[in-house]
Design a protein around this nucleic acid. Sequence first.
DNA 1: AATATGGATTTCACTAGGTGGAACGCTATG
DNA 2: CATAGCGTTCCACCTAGTGAAATCCATATT
Lengths: 261, 261
Amino acid sequence: MTKLNRSVERGLSILEVISSNGVCSLAFLAERTGLPKPTILRICATLVQQRWLTQSRSDSRYRVGSRFPRVNSHPDSIDSLVEAGASAILALTDATGLGVDLAAPIGNGRVEIVDTTRTFSEHGIFPDCIGYRPSPFRSALGCAFLAALEPEQEAEYSARLAVHTTGKDRAAALALPAKLREVRAQGFATREDGYWGRAVDYGGIPSAIAVAIGSPGHIVGAVSLIWLAEQHSVASVAKAHLDKLNATAQEIGKLYAANLG
Amino acid sequence: MTKLNRSVERGLSILEVISSNGVCSLAFLAERTGLPKPTILRICATLVQQRWLTQSRSDSRYRVGSRFPRVNSHPDSIDSLVEAGASAILALTDATGLGVDLAAPIGNGRVEIVDTTRTFSEHGIFPDCIGYRPSPFRSALGCAFLAALEPEQEAEYSARLAVHTTGKDRAAALALPAKLREVRAQGFATREDGYWGRAVDYGGIPSAIAVAIGSPGHIVGAVSLIWLAEQHSVASVAKAHLDKLNATAQEIGKLYAANLG
DNA sequence: AATATGGATTTCACTAGGTGGAACGCTATG
DNA sequence: CATAGCGTTCCACCTAGTGAAATCCATATT
C-alpha cells in the first residue's frame, strides 16, 4: 500500500471543518480536529498564504478565502439581504428584547449567519457569530430554510448534504424528513436540544426559533430569535413573538425583492 | 513569522492543477508542479483516500472527487451535448481529415473536453483528452467560448478567472481583451503558439482553430479542429475548412436545443 | 490599577515522517 | 524483439514538521 501524507490529511480536515462551519477560531479548530494548536497555526498560515483561507485582522479567526473552490456563492445577494434586514432586525430586537440572527443561503442547502443583533451584555450570548454556518439539520435557521424549499430542491440538497455528514449530524440527517414536517406544521423551526450546547461558547445554553424569508420556491434567507434557554421556554416565546418574527421575515423579503428590482 | 507547512503547500498546488485542468496523469502533475513523482503519488493517495480526488481504475489518472467543494457542474447538459455532437463531429473529421474536439462549459468560464475524434494513428495526436480543461486564455476552445459570451458574462467570468491565474496564464489573462477582439474579428479562435507545446504529450506540436456552439448569450459549448502544426498552417486550414466547422457548430447547437425541447 | 483568564503565538530540542533517486514491472508502440 | 514512458515500490537519509511549555496580548473581573 502506498504511504500517505499526514500533513496533507491534517490540512484537509481543517479545510473541511472551516468549510462546513464557516468562520472558525484556532481553539475551535483544535477542539474539532484534536490537533495541537501550534500545528494548526502552521497549517492555517500555509492555507492563508495560499489564499485558501483568509484570516480576520481583528480576531484572527479563519474563513474560506478567494482560492477556495467554493460552491457558487452570491456575495451580491448576501449584501442585499444584509441591507434589507438591517433595520428590521433591530426593530425586532427592540420589540422582543431577544437576540435576532439573519442568515443567507450559500447555495448548497446550508445557510450562513450574515448579521445579528446579539450583544453579550443584553442577551447573555456572544455576538461573534457572523460567518458561522449552523447545522442544516439541527439548528433553527438551517431547518427553517430547508423546510421552506420546494420538495424537489429540498430533496436535492438533503441528498447532497447527507454525503458529507458524520457523527451526531448523521442521526439528525436521517430524522430530517420528520423534523421538516413538524416545522411546516407548527410554522417555525427550533434548535435541536443540546445542539452545540457548549455553554463556554455562548455564556449559556441558547434556545431559538426561526422562519424562512421569501416565498415558496424562492427562499432568500432565514431569521431567528435567540435567547438563553434558562430564561424562557420555546412555547412562551413562540406564543408571544412568532407573529412579529413572521412579520419581520415578510418585511425583509419585500425589501430584498424591491432592492433587486 | 510563523513557519509554513511544505506538505500542505504541495497538496494545495496539486489540487489547483487538477481543479483547473481537469483530469490529470501523474506525469502531468509532476511536470506542472515540479515535484518528484513519488511525492505526488503519496500526496494524491492521501487526497484520494479523503475523497478530494478520485482515481480512474483503468488509467489511474486523477480528477476531483466527491468531497471536493466543486463548482456546480451540469452533467445532464453535458450528456445532451455529447449526444447532439456525436455524429456531427465524426462527419467533420471525415470531411476534413483532421481531429475534432467537442467541449462543454463547466460554469466558471472554463470548458471541459467532452468528446473527440482524435486517434493517434490518423491524426498523430494522443486522444486521451476527455475530461481535460484547456486554458481559458491560451487554448482555441477556451477562447472561442469566452469570445462568444455576452459582454457582461464575459466580464464576470474573466474577473473570476483572473483571481486564480498564475505564471504564464497570468500574462495571457491580461492580453485577453485584445485576443477576444481578434477572435471575434476573424471568426474563429486559435491555440496560442507554444501553449502546452510539449511534443511528448501529443506526439507532436498541435495547432487548432475553434468556434463556439449556440447563439449569443446562450453558448452551450465549442468545437475545434486540431492537427499537427508541422503539416498545415492555421491560415490554410481556416480557408479550407472554417465554413464546415461553423456548419457543424450550428448543427450541434440546433440538435442540442431540439433534444432539450 | 491590579489581577485573572483564555485565547493566539513563539520557542526549541527531538525524531517521526516525509523525501526523492534509483530500480522495478507493466503496457503500448515501432 | 527492443524501446519508451508510464505508475509504482524501495529504502537510506535527514530535513521538515512536531508539540509541550513558555510567552505574549487583549479582554474581563476584582
